[in-house]
């Protein structure tokens, strides 16, 4: 079986004699037996640490949960600086979590969380920060200040949590380069290994934003800027 891996600017082909296994196993085999310089990140092998996200045939995957096929073309994630081979610099994407204030503002006291409460953000709290969603996001590709899918999902995780008492300030933080910049194209949903839909989380954050008095700036602009930032008409 042959696979090719993008290194520097060109694809390098490797031949391996294993099949029916994960891409990560194949990459490890190449590194330890053929080419010690091949560089990639990995950790848990069980899809929870988010280290081995990369692209195969133009699709974001976790190398540890992707069954490799003959002829696969393996590349690093997009929209992120490549450090070496398949290793990218995740620090900027990670920094969006702080920028979006993706945390619980107040430490809760004695708030009862029901089964229904817990189900609301069960999937969102499965996020492993692999960064596949930033790689697939066409908005982030052109606006590098866009808070982006995983950090907005994280904000929704906290906003939707019954333990968060300061919902308003969370909503305030995500208005600029945030919820309204998303085009709802759904690419992030399609590539998420944890079945999270940041697109639908962003839609829910938009509803919350409207309830908090914000409106879609592009919608406001289409009325000739006739509405103020709080949604009230200006004259």
């Amino acid at each position: 079986m042959k696979i090719s891996v993008k290194r520097e600017e060109k694809f390098v082909e490797y031949e391996v004699d294993i099949a029916d296994t994960t891409l990560l196993e194949v990459l490890k085999k190449i590194k330890t037996t053929q080419d010690n310089t091949l560089t990639f990140s990995s950790g848990c092998r069980s899809s929870v640490c988010g280290s081995c996200s990369m692209r195969v045939n133009d699709r974001e995957v976790l190398a540890c949960s992707y069954k490799v096929q003959d002829g696969d073309r393996v590349e690093p994630l997009k929209n992120v600086p490549v450090i070496r081979d398949l290793v990218v610099d995740m620090s900027k994407a990670y920094a969006f979590n702080a920028k979006a204030k993706a945390w619980q503002n107040t430490v809760s006291k004695g708030v009862a969380v029901t089964q229904n409460n817990e189900k609301i953000n069960e999937v969102q709290s499965d996020c492993i920060l692999c960064g596949s969603c930033y790689s697939a996001c066409p908005v982030y590709a052109v606006n590098e200040e866009f808070l982006g899918p995983f950090s907005l999902t994280r904000v929704w995780k906290y906003v939707s949590d019954v333990r968060e008492e300061d919902e308003k300030s969370k909503i305030d933080t995500i208005q600029s380069n945030g919820v309204w910049d998303c085009t709802l194209c759904n690419e992030c949903t399609l590539v998420c290994p944890q079945n999270i839909s940041s697109k639908s989380d962003i839609e829910k954050l938009r509803s919350k934003s409207v309830m908090a008095g914000y409106s879609d700036p592009s919608f406001a602009n289409s009325f000739g800027g006739g509405f103020g930032f709080d949604g009230s008409p200006t004259f």
Binding site: W103, Q104, V107, S108, K109, V113, T114, Q115, N117, E118, N121, E122, S125, K157, Y158, D161, R163, E164
Partner: peptide
Amino acid sequence: DSIGVCFSRT
């Protein structure tokens, strides 16, 4: 629980 861990519930 107070800082937001999403434990399963009864």
